[in-house]
Design a protein around this nucleic acid. Structure first.
Length: 114
DNA sequence: ACAATGACATAAG
DNA sequence: GCTTATGCCATTG
């Protein structure tokens, strides 16, 4: 139980309001940039009342990935809008604007060349 | 230890 | 832009 899950929850709890983080980003900070699935599972295993702003966690496209939790979509969008996050016509969030600029992530910036 | 699962990510068609 | 296929990592049975 404790370990990755707890790390995920703790990290999500550290996400400042008005900003959103992606599964991949969280996974990368945890040490496994490819463990996005496990991150999502941690949030799923979580549930409401845990005090974890799971609504601030979205996929890389800034979209809501509640594949098995369609009800979470409304909750997430409502909570994010309440925090000031805007949704575009496609129901997506601008990661370039609301993306979580955590210094920890900046240290591992991929900065790929073109 | 193996197989199956899962709120993802990336590549290819 | 969307759909399909494969990979990746951790948890559970």
């Amino acid at each position: 139980m404790d370990g990755f899950f707890e790390r995920v929850w703790d990290l999500v709890c550290q996400i400042p309001p008005g900003q959103v983080a992606t599964y991949g980003q969280i996974a990368e900070i945890l040490g496994s940039p490819r463990a996005a699935r496990t991150v999502g599972w941690a949030l799923h295993a979580l549930l409401e009342g845990s005090g974890v702003p799971w609504h601030r966690v979205i996929n890389q496209e800034g979209r809501i990935s509640t594949s098995k939790h369609p009800q979470g979509y409304g909750e997430q969008r409502c909570l994010l809008e309440m925090e000031g996050v805007e949704f575009d016509e496609q129901g997506r969030v601008n990661l370039h604007i609301y993306g979580w600029d955590d210094p920890l992530h900046l240290l591992r910036e991929p900065e790929e060349v073109s």
